[in-house]
C-alpha cells in the first residue's frame, strides 16, 4: 500500500502525487464557476436551492479538501513536505482568488494583507494545520492496522493540532472573534491609512 517516493521512478511518482491536489483544484474551480453561472437561473426557488447546495460544496472543497488530499498523497508515499504542500493547494488557490478580487478595489499590498491575514482566510489557513495533524494520525492508524507496526502518537501531529487550535480560539471564539478582528483593523489603520 505504502509506495515509496524513490529516485528510481520520480516522474511517475511526482505525477501520481500531484494528481489528487490537481483534481481538487479543478473541482474547486468548477464549483466556483458553477456558482457564478447559476446566477443566470431566473426561477427564484430553483436558484436558491442550487446556489445553497453549490455553496456548501464550495466551502467543503475550500476548507476540507485536505482530508482527502493528505491521506491519498501519504498512502502514495509522498514525503511530509509534499503532503503538506499538496494539502494547502486549494486554500492557497482560494486566497489567490480573493487577492485578485480585492486588488480590484484596493492596492496590491492591502489586497495581500486581506488575502492572508483576514479572519476567514486565517481561519482556513490555520485550520489546515490541525486537519493535517488529524489526518496524519488517521493515516498512521490505518498504516499500523495494515502493517502492524510504526509510530502512532508522536509529538509532531499533537503539537500541530494544539498550536493551531490556540489561534483558532482567538480568531473564532474569544469575544466572538471581535477582539481579533479589531486588532487586524488597528494594524490595517496603522499600515495603510
Amino acid at each position: 500500500m505504502d509506495k515509496s517516493f524513490t529516485a528510481a521512478n520520480p516522474p511517475d511518482s511526482i505525477r501520481r502525487l500531484f494528481v489528487a491536489p490537481l483534481i481538487a483544484v479543478v473541482i474547486w474551480i468548477a464549483l466556483q464557476m458553477s456558482y457564478d453561472l447559476l446566477g443566470y437561473i431566473d426561477n427564484k426557488s430553483i436558484y436558491r436551492t442550487l446556489a445553497a447546495v453549490n455553496w456548501v460544496l464550495l466551502v467543503l472543497s475550500t476548507g476540507f479538501s485536505v482530508v482527502v488530499i493528505y491521506p491519498i498523497t501519504a498512502f502514495m508515499g509522498a514525503p511530509l513536505s509534499i503532503r503538506i504542500l499538496a494539502s494547502y493547494i486549494v486554500p492557497l488557490v482560494w486566497c489567490l482568488k480573493e487577492f485578485i478580487r480585492v486588488s480590484g478595489n484596493h492596492t496590491v499590498v492591502e489586497a495581500l494583507y486581506y488575502a492572508i491575514f483576514e479572519s476567514v482566510q486565517l481561519l482556513v489557513l490555520i485550520s489546515q494545520v490541525a486537519l493535517i495533524g488529524g489526518c496524519e494520525l488517521v493515516y498512521r492508524w490505518f498504516k499500523r492496522k495494515s502493517n502492524g507496526s510504526g509510530p502512532f502518537l508522536t509529538p509532531g501531529p499533537i503539537i500541530a493540532i494544539i498550536l493551531s487550535v490556540i489561534p483558532l480560539y482567538f480568531i473564532l471564539i474569544y469575544e466572538s472573534g471581535h477582539v481579533f478582528s479589531l486588532k487586524l483593523r488597528m494594524i490595517y489603520r496603522y499600515l495603510f491609512l
Binding site: Y47, R48, T49, A52, W55, V59, R101
Partner: peptide, 19 residues
C-alpha cells in the same frame, strides 16, 4: 421571504467578502 431578491439564498451572506 419570497419578497427578497433571488440572490438571498441560504448561505448568500458568506460569499465574495459579504461574510
Amino acid at each position: 421571504i419570497d419578497h427578497l431578491p433571488k440572490w438571498a439564498h441560504r448561505f448568500a451572506g458568506m460569499v465574495n467578502g459579504e461574510i
